[in-house]
């Protein structure tokens, strides 16, 4: 290889490209970032739900950040069924205890982890939920058992503000 001396012009080219790249990046980024959730969307981060009217075996659906959240008050049999499932049978192994801190209450995003449809209550082969779009079956703990969905339905951050009120988010 012939040795090439770095001269003044090479330095100016490199410096111009570098500054130009930074300039283009700084101009393009606002154009891209404007599409991300804005301040008003982010502000609606939490929802409080009164669950006093919910009887065992019933599910209500509430809207949180534009997404449905299932709140199910489970019966004794349902809790027993959810706890009896062996980890080897699960596609996305997760203990029921980790999903429902208070086993009577299951709170999770009512969004199928396949392509985002809302699964139907009390349907499917595992007495839980069934997604009508592409046929994913979830059990009574909201865990994926059959179908194309890769993971269990997501449990959002939530807490009991008092005995009758759940705060999601």
């Amino acid at each position: 290889m012939s040795e090439k001396k770095t001269n003044r012009r090479d330095f100016l080219f490199t410096a111009t490209y570098a500054v130009g790249a930074v300039g283009v990046g700084a101009t393009v980024w606002p154009m891209i970032d404007q599409m991300n959730p804005d301040a008003s969307v982010k502000a609606l981060a939490s929802t409080e739900v009164d669950v006093s009217s919910l009887t065992p075996g019933k599910t209500i659906t509430v809207l949180w950040r534009g997404k449905p959240v299932f709140i199910r008050r489970r019966t004794e049999e349902e809790i027993a069924e959810a706890k009896s499932v062996k980890m080897e049978e699960l596609k996305d192994p997760e203990k029921d205890e980790d999903r429902a801190k208070n086993p009577e209450w299951l709170v999770m995003l009512g969004v199928c982890t396949h392509l985002g449809c809302v699964p139907l209550n009390d349907k499917g082969d595992y007495n839980g939920w069934f997604c009508p779009c592409h046929g994913s079956h979830y059990d009574i703990s909201g865990r994926i058992r059959k179908g194309p969905a890769p993971t269990n339905m997501t449990v959002p951050k939530y807490e009991f503000v008092n005995a009758n009120t759940i705060k999601i988010g």
Binding site: I32, M35, N36, P37, D38, V41, R65, G66, K67, H114, L115, G116, C117, C133
Partner: peptide
């Protein structure tokens, strides 16, 4: 919802891309 969720299949950045496409946490 279904079509934009196709992008969530991309490992690691998928969820972020979907949120970016939506401009929120759901189609709105």
């Amino acid at each position: 919802t279904v079509i934009t969720n196709l992008f969530s299949a991309i490992p690691l950045v998928g969820e972020g891309i979907v949120t970016w496409l939506w401009g929120g946490y759901s189609v709105d």
